[in-house]
Simulated scan of single mutants.
Amino acid sequence: MPADGRFVAGARLALTTFTTLPVRAGRIDRAVAGTAMALAPAVGALLGALLAGVLLLLATVAPPLVAAGVTVGAAALLTRGLHLDGLADTVDALGSYRRGPAALEIMKKPDVGPFGVVALVVVLLLQTATLAELAGRSWPACLAAVVAATAAGRLGVTLACRRGVPAARPDGLGALVAGTVGPPALALGVVAVALVAVAAVPDRPWQGPLAVGVALAVAVALLAHVVRRLGGITGDVLGATVEVVTTLVYLGLVLSG
């Protein structure tokens, strides 16, 4: 497939994977999947801009906590709740202290266990609380913060799909995207998200990039642990990475705010 055709197909796949936008996916193979995972932060930035608009608009007519809660709900709706589902399944598998196929079987169960429930509650509470604080900032800072955090969460997926990280199963989303992202695409994504994060805390321009860096470092450690326990990544692991990184960046942006 020509490079321009692969880029268009990858952009379509990224949009259908990370949002509910009614975009029809085209050809899907590992090359296209790699392009989609490299473009994940850009899709996150688009989603973040939409969510920032929801937050800022609602904050003009409702208390910040209400605006933040609705924004978190909108984020779940715009992503089909897939990332939250992945978070719950991944935490349940890791919390079982089982390894390999036994842990993967837990992830495939439709129910949510106690570890998963706690993880969902903590993440949703933290995201709501931090968004409520961000709603009180100037609109440029709020916009930059939400865009940076949402893009960083998808950058976590780019990180998880870098070369050298295996898939846990021979089929599924993890097998399609594992190891498809090269160093240049990952480096470009890190620089782009860090630059956006600079504007999130105008009086401390270092804080945004630092928050992104710390969140990605945690993601690296989490992914290494997942590979040891499960044998590689799965679609659920990618979803969990999105929520963990997004939440940590939000937290980093409001500390000492």
Rank of each mutant, 00 (worst) to 15 (best):
G113V: 01
L87Y: 03
P2D: 15
P114Q: 12
T90V: 03
G113N: 06
L159Y: 02
L87D: 00
A145G: 14
A25E: 14
L186G: 02
F7L: 15
G34Q: 04
V146R: 00
E243P: 07
L176V: 08
L253Y: 05
L176E: 00
T150P: 02
V32S: 06
A59L: 09
V118K: 07
V32D: 01
V242R: 06
L126N: 08
V123R: 01
A36N: 04
L216V: 04
A38T: 12
D203C: 10
L39Q: 03
G164E: 10
M37K: 01
L13R: 04
A132Q: 02
G232F: 00
K108C: 10
G189W: 05
G116M: 02
L21V: 14
A68Y: 03
A9R: 05
T158R: 08
V242L: 03
A59N: 14
V61S: 08
A102N: 13
A224W: 13
H83C: 05
V201M: 06
R12C: 03
R163L: 09
V8D: 13
L223C: 02
R229F: 07
E133A: 15
G53E: 13
C161R: 01
A168Q: 05
T16A: 15
G156S: 07
V70F: 12
P41H: 08
A14R: 01
G34W: 08
G182T: 14
R6L: 14
V245R: 02
H83K: 06
A42Q: 03
V218S: 10
P170S: 12
V177A: 10
A14K: 01
P140F: 13
L82A: 15
R98Y: 04
V177E: 01
A168F: 03
L78V: 12
A240L: 04
W206N: 09
A199K: 04
A149G: 11
A168G: 07
T158A: 14
L176G: 04
T35K: 11
L238C: 10
A75L: 12
A76D: 07
I28P: 02
G252L: 10
R154T: 04
A119F: 02
V245Q: 02
G164Y: 13
T128W: 01
L47K: 01
R98P: 01
M37Y: 03
D236G: 00
L77C: 11
G5E: 15
Y250S: 05
L159Q: 11
V61L: 11
G189M: 07
A68I: 06
A175M: 06
F7K: 06
L65M: 12
A93M: 07
G100A: 13
G69E: 06
T247R: 04
A199P: 07
P205M: 13
T247L: 02
V123L: 09
L143I: 10
A52N: 11
A45M: 14
L39T: 04
D29R: 12
G100I: 11
E243C: 05
R229P: 05
A199H: 10
W206Y: 15
L125C: 15
A93D: 03
A42D: 02
V8E: 14
V23D: 05
V254K: 04
V123D: 01
V54L: 11
L65Y: 09
A88R: 04
